[in-house]
Simulated assay, not measured.
Amino acid sequence: KYYHYYNLFAQIGLVDEKNRLLRDKDIVLFPRKVNGKFVMLHRIWPGIQIVQFEKWEDLTKAFWEDHIKNLTEYILLDPLYDFEVNYIGAGGPPIETEEGWLIIYHGVCETHIGKTYHAAAALLDLENPAKVIARLPYPLFSPSQKWEKEGVVNHVVFPTGSALFGDDLYIYYGAADKHIAVARVSMSQLLSELKKNVTHGKT
């Protein structure tokens, strides 16, 4: 998959004898250090990768060169289900729960109406966030309202942040790249549903 996207960039002139450019997006930081390290998610098409480091000064050119050369070792999630078959990317900062780190991300699939962006959810180990515990095999929510289906970019729900009030998890998202919206879900029900979908080593 990663070689496929590398070739796509080559076709549009972003790769030549002097340049090896990768499209890196959707960077989010965990809200606290884990085992003494900062933890960060980012997206080099088509999956989500994880980065862990002790201090910001560690992020040198050599650090990133090694990270890119060994990128497959840092893949946290790759597209797995039909609704996210094209590519995925992190949303807001992970949410710490007793069950693990909850991440809300977006998944993209190509359909007869063009690309559709869905919201999705996964659960990471609390002490080892590089380990995926569970992952919903279906979207958390998808474009359904007219203002989610029609806009600057059609058929988009793009989660970017969240807030937890009691058991109510509010997920803030961009709708069709034109509006800002919020969806509410029960945190306990979401975690319960995730625990029904343990990954068994799949990412």
Rank of each mutant, 00 (worst) to 15 (best):
Y3P: 05
Y3H: 09
H4E: 08
L8V: 15
F9L: 15
F9S: 13
I12W: 03
G13E: 00
G13P: 04
L14K: 11
D16W: 01
D16V: 13
E17I: 05
R20K: 15
L21M: 13
R23Y: 12
K25R: 10
K25D: 02
K25W: 02
F30N: 05
K33F: 06
G36D: 12
K37L: 15
L41G: 07
I44R: 04
I44M: 07
W45Y: 08
W45V: 03
P46Y: 06
I50P: 03
Q52E: 15
F53I: 11
W56C: 09
W56V: 14
L59T: 08
W64R: 12
W64M: 10
E65L: 15
D66C: 09
H67P: 00
K69Q: 14
N70H: 14
T72N: 12
Y74R: 12
P79I: 09
N86E: 14
Y87A: 06
I88D: 00
I88V: 13
I88T: 08
A90I: 07
I95W: 01
I95G: 00
I95D: 01
E98V: 06
G100T: 03
G100C: 03
G100D: 01
G100L: 01
W101L: 06
L102C: 00
L102A: 02
V108C: 10
E110S: 12
E110L: 15
T111W: 03
T111V: 10
T111K: 08
G114N: 02
G114R: 06
G114A: 05
G114S: 08
K115V: 08
A121G: 02
L124Y: 04
L126T: 11
P129T: 13
A130T: 13
K131S: 09
L136G: 01
L136F: 01
S142Y: 04
S144A: 03
E148T: 07
K149R: 14
K149A: 05
E150F: 04
V152N: 14
V152S: 12
V157Q: 04
F158C: 00
P159F: 04
T160F: 03
F165D: 12
Y170I: 00
I171G: 03
G174A: 12
D177P: 06
D177M: 07
K178G: 03
H179C: 04
V182Y: 02
R184Q: 05
S186K: 11
L190N: 00
S192G: 15
N197T: 04
N197E: 04
H200C: 13
